[in-house]
Write a protein that binds this DNA or RNA. Structure first.
Lengths: 143, 143
DNA sequence: TCTGAATTGCAACTCAATCTCAATATCAGT
DNA sequence: ACTGATATTGAGATTGAGTTGCAATTCAGA
């Protein structure tokens, strides 16, 4: 299913769905959760598929443009991505004590952001909301 | 005022408020709005003050730790900072075409986030909301 | 003024990400 | 299947932000 969407995206730009691009796509969609380019590359290298580091990066950028993959954050050690097909958009709460990541979604929040963009005549395409603090467990533990 | 806070922060760690650190601090607080390390360095170099690139980076990290400066975003061209002393909390819209950063604030948005935290029994302390897209000018330019 | 810790600047370095380019693959049209 | 035009690949070079090692320097307190 993802490959069909990617296929379409590529041909709309006169690009081809090659073996290497297929490798990257399949590997990404076989991963559950977040990943970074280097690990993605290594996991492809260690499988029966193949693609150079350059191709992994190039394909990753195409996938982001196609909307199938999203860049979640830019850490000081590089970018982190996740695939979004079949996933609803969501935001994150991050516990600064234990590192737990809680996903959440609020339609109301999304609407509000849309309104704010309109007010500023800004054409928003994506957003990242990251709330940092302490999760339930860590609040208790601190007492 | 900022220098007093920084001074205190430094001595609490057994560090000194040197000329170079003073240069960086003063230059940052003379800038209105956002800045990146390279421009900060250049503006210091072109003024009567002085500090090497290394010192600028080192001081910048100290200032972030002290809470006087915040890192707003990590773009593909490096980090962007702003000084926070005397500033109310706000969020950012970032134009992916020209890099412009627009500040905004919404009480409603803040309330909503508080509610969401309560729902998840999460004790939120800070948050970062970054909306990426195209500013008014770049929307026009693209047509 | 002496002493030791902190600081500086330069250049070397790191590391993610991008680019170069020659070789290779792919597709459309014949 | 052949041909030409275009897209793609991988290996390694390159970029560029940010960090670090180190010898020389500054600074604060005794």
């Amino acid at each position: 299913m993802e490959s069909k969407i990617f296929q379409e995206f590529l041909s709309r730009r006169g690009l081809k769905l090659t073996k290497e691009r297929m490798s990257v796509l399949r590997q990404i969609f076989s991963i559950h959760g977040h990943f970074d380019p280097e690990h993605l590359y290594l996991s492809i290298r260690d499988s029966d598929m193949k693609a150079s580091r350059a191709s992994v990066y190039r394909t990753l950028n195409l996938l982001v443009e196609s909307g199938l993959v999203e860049r979640i954050t830019r850490s000081d050690k590089g970018n982190v991505y996740e695939h979004t097909y079949g996933h609803r958009h969501h935001d994150h709460m991050i516990c600064t004590a234990c590192g737990e990541v809680i996903e959440f979604f609020s339609e109301h929040l999304e609407d509000l952001q849309k309104m704010i963009c309109e007010q500023h005549q800004f054409a928003g395409t994506t957003h990242t909301l990251e709330i940092r603090g302490n999760c339930k467990a860590c609040q208790k533990r601190k007492k």
